[in-house]
Write a protein that binds this DNA or RNA. Structure first.
Length: 558
RNA sequence: GCACCCGUAGCUCAGCUGGAUAGAGCGUUGGCUUGCGGAGCCAAAGGUCGUAGGUUCGAAUCCUGUCGGGUGUACCA
C-alpha cells in the first residue's frame, strides 16, 4: 500500500516535471493525515518554482487514486495523504513473512554478553544479554538465520588470580576437595576467590609473583590440553562450573548461546594470523612486541603479541573473527560490547581489514554504555563492590513484591527487560528498580497489563469475527487503527538501526491510544461490537508481537 | 596533548539520513469515578534543545569554534 503510493507520487512528479525524485513517505502528525511527503519542497529548489504550486499539481494528479480519501497541500508545500478506511485497514501487518524480509536467507553471527569464566556476571552482562536477545529476535523476524555466540577469557590474568585463591582455599592443589562443594555455592565461591586473588595481587608482592607463575602454568595446561595433573583437574572443573553457571543464568532470562568461543581456542588462530601478516608487513615488531600501527588511519598503535610472545586481547579478537568465519561463513556479524572499547575495536578491525577486508566489511560493532543505579553506584569488578546481575534481579523482584504483593517471574523479567530496552542503545543508562516495576507510566508491567486487559475483553465476547470488515470508521476507531498500522514500519526501522527502543516507544504510544479509545467507546454490547472486537484483537496481537520481539512475555492473564 | 561519545522540562528519557506549534513518563496542581480488569482518562504548570557562529526556504537534527561531563590512548581486558 505504501509502496503503491510512493510509486504513484514518483510517477506524478515524473509526468509533470520530468524529474526523478527520491521519495520517502513519512508519518506526520495525525491531524495531517496518514502519510506525508516533502517532495514538492525538494522539487521547488531544483525547478526554482514555488513549492506550493508544485505540491498542488502533484496532489491534483493523485486525486484519482482509489486508495486515497484525500490529498491536501499544507504549510510550505507538504502533501498530506489520507487513505480510505478500507485501504488503511489493508496496511495492517502484525506478523511479517520472513522469507521476504531484509535479511532473508542471510546468516548472521551475533556475539554478545561475553562474560569471562572464573568471574561473576554483572549488571552490564545482563543488559547486554537482554539487548542482544532483542536484536536477535528482530533479525530472525527479518529472515536471518541467527547464530548466538559468546566469547570469553578462559585464560589470562583474571584466571590466575581466581585459581590462586582457589588453591589457597582448598589448602593446596587438591582437586578431590572440589567434590564437597555444593552446586549452589560454586559460582559464589569462585566470585569470592576472584576478589581475594585480585586484592592479593595488588597488595602483596609475594602473592603477585605466585599468581604470575601460576598463570603461566595454566596457559601451559590449556595449550597442552593437559587434564591429568591436580592443578589441571581443578582448572577444568572450575572452568566448567563457570560455563554451567552462565548457561543456567541465560536460561533464566530466556537466552541460549549455541557456542562459546573460549580465548584459549581463538588465541592460537590469532597468533598464527598475526605472525603470518607480520611477514607481510601488516603488523610490525616494536620493542620486542608485535603491534599494529594505527596512526596512518587516524587511530593509535596497539600490541597484538606482547614481548613475552603471549597474545593480547587484540590477537585473540583476530582469532575470534577468523574462527567465526571458519564456522559460519556469515553474511554479517554483529558484535555487541561496551563503548569503552570503541577505539580498541577500530584498531583491531583496521588491522584485519589489511588481509581479510571482506570479513571486516561484514562486521558491525554495536556499543552500549554502563548500567548505573539511580543515585549512582559505580561498577568495578576488581574489588567486588559492584552491581551483579543477580543483584538487579533481586532488587526488581523485591520492588515488584512491594508494588503488587507477589513475585511473578514474567513481570519481574518484563520490568527489567523493558527498562533496559526502552532507552536508545549507546549512552550510559540509569536504572531505577522502583520505576521499572511501576504499574503506571512507561514500563514493562504496564504493557503486560494492557495486553492482558485487552485479551479479557475478547474472552468476554460471545464471538468475534477475525475477518470483520473495517469500514466507515468513527474518528476514535480510525485513530486506533492508524496507530496499529504503524507497527510494521516501526519494526523495520528498529531492525535497520539495530535499535529495539523504537519498538518500546511505539508500544507505549499504542497502549495509550487504545486506552483513550476504550475510555470513550463501549466495545461489547455496542452496535459496532463486531468492528470494535476486531480492532481490540488487532491491538492485542500487535502488543503481544512487539513484546515478544523484545523478549518480554505477554501472558493472557495477570 | 590527541581521539571518540554525551549535554533536550525539576528527574528519567523520546525526537537526530533537516521539515509543519520540540514530545512522553515520573513528580507537582486540578477534574472524571458503583468501570467491558480505573494498573485508566481529561486538563494545567514546566524547555534560550549547554553556548557562539555557519550552511539552508527551513536546524534539537548538518558543519566549525567554545564550555561542561565521560571514555580511550603499547605490551590489562
Amino acid at each position: 500500500m505504501k509502496q503503491e503510493l510512493e510509486q504513484a507520487i514518483t510517477k506524478a512528479a515524473k509526468d509533470l516535471f520530468a524529474l526523478d525524485v527520491r521519495l520517502e513517505l513519512t508519518r506526520p502528525d495525525e491531524q495531517f493525515g496518514d502519510y506525508a511527503t516533502n517532495v514538492a519542497l525538494q522539487l521547488g529548489k531544483q525547478l526554482n518554482k514555488n513549492p506550493r504550486e508544485i505540491a498542488d499539481a502533484i496532489a491534483k494528479e493523485l486525486t484519482g487514486l482509489s486508495l486515497l480519501e484525500k490529498s491536501e497541500v499544507a504549510g510550505p508545500g507538504f502533501i498530506n495523504l489520507t487513505l480510505s478506511d478500507h485501504a488503511l485497514a489493508g496496511t495492517v501487518q502484525v506478523e511479517t513473512d520472513i522469507a521476504t524480509g531484509e535479511y532473508a536467507d542471510q546468516s548472521v553471527v551475533l556475539e554478545y554478553s561475553d562474560p569471562n569464566p572464573f568471574k561473576v556476571l554483572h549488571a552490564g552482562h545482563l543488559y547486554q544479554t537482554i539487548f542482544g536477545e532483542a536484536v536477535a529476535n528482530l533479525l530472525v523476524r527479518a529472515g536471518a538465520v541467527v547464530h548466538r555466540v559468546n566469547f570469553g577469557g578462559d585464560v589470562g590474568l583474571h584466571v590466575g588470580k581466581t585459581m590462586w585463591a582457589i588453591v589457597q582455599d582448598l589448602g593446596g592443589e587438591s582437586p578431590e576437595k572440589l567434590a564437597t562443594m555444593p552446586k549452589a555455592e560454586r559460582s559464589e565461591w569462585m566470585a569470592k576467590c576472584y576478589v581475594k586473588g585480585t586484592n592479593a595481587y595488588e597488595e602483596d608482592d609475594a602473592s603477585k609473583q605466585q599468581i604470575i607463575d601460576l598463570n603461566k602454568r595454566i596457559y601451559q595446561i590449556v595449550s597442552d590440553g593437559e587434564h591429568d595433573s591436580p592443578l589441571a583437574q581443578i582448572y577444568w572443573t572450575c572452568r566448567q562450573w563457570s560455563y554451567d553457571y552462565f548457561d543456567e543464568f541465560y536460561a533464566s532470562v530466556g537466552t541460549h548461546f549455541e557456542r562459546y568461543y573460549p580465548e584459549s581456542e581463538t588465541a592460537p588462530l590469532g597468533i598464527e594470523a598475526v605472525k603470518e601478516q607480520l611477514q607481510k608487513g601488516v603488523y610490525q615488531e616494536s620493542d620486542g612486541a608485535v603491534v599494529f600501527k594505527g596512526e596512518p588511519y587516524g587511530l593509535h598503535t596497539r600490541v597484538f603479541i606482547n614481548s613475552h610472545g603471549l597474545p593480547t586481547y587484540e590477537a585473540k579478537d583476530v582469532g575470534l573473527t577468523l574462527a567465526k568465519w571458519r564456522d559460519y561463513h556469515f553474511d554479517r556479524t554483529i558484535i555487541i560490547t561496551g563503548n569503552d572499547i570503541i577505539e580498541y575495536m577500530k584498531v583491531v578491525l583496521k588491522s584485519i581489514e589489511q588481509f581479510e577486508p571482506e570479513l571486516v566489511a561484514r562486521t558491525t560493532h554495536v556499543t552500549h554504555g554502563q548500567v548505573k543505579l539511580r543515585g549512582g553506584v559505580k561498577m568495578s569488578s576488581r574489588k567486588g563492590n559492584f552491581l551483579r546481575a543477580v543483584d538487579v534481579l533481586d532488587m526488581v523482584a523485591e520492588a515488584s513484591q512491594e508494588t503488587t504483593g507477589e513475585r511473578n517471574n514474567d513481570v519481574v523479567l518484563g520490568a527489567i527487560k523493558y527498562a533496559f530496552l526502552k532507552q536508545r542503545i549507546g549512552p550510559d543508562i540509569i536504572f531505577d528498580p522502583k520505576e521499572s516495576v511501576a504499574i503506571e507510566g512507561n514500563s514493562g508491567p504496564y504493557l503486560q497489563y494492557a495486553h492482558a486487559r485487552a485479551r479479557s475483553i475478547l474472552a468476554k465476547a460471545v464471538e468475534h469475527k477475525k475477518t470483520a470488515e473495517l469500514a466507515d470508521l468513527t474518528a476514535d476507531e480510525r485513530s486506533l487503527l492508524r496507530k496499529i498500522t504503524e507497527y510494521s514500519e516501526v519494526v523495520q526501522k528498529a531492525t535497520a538501526d539495530l535499535m529495539p527502543h523504537h519498538i518500546c516507544t511505539y508500544l507505549y504510544e499504542l497502549a495509550q491510544k487504545f486506552n483513550q479509545f476504550y475510555e470513550h467507546n463501549r466495545v461489547i454490547g455496542d452496535d459496532r461490537e463486531t468492528e470494535r472486537l476486531r480492532l481490540v484483537d488487532l491491538y492485542a496481537s500487535t502488543l503481544k508481537s512487539g513484546l515478544v520481539l523484545l523478549g518480554i512475555a505477554a501472558p493472557e492473564r495477570l
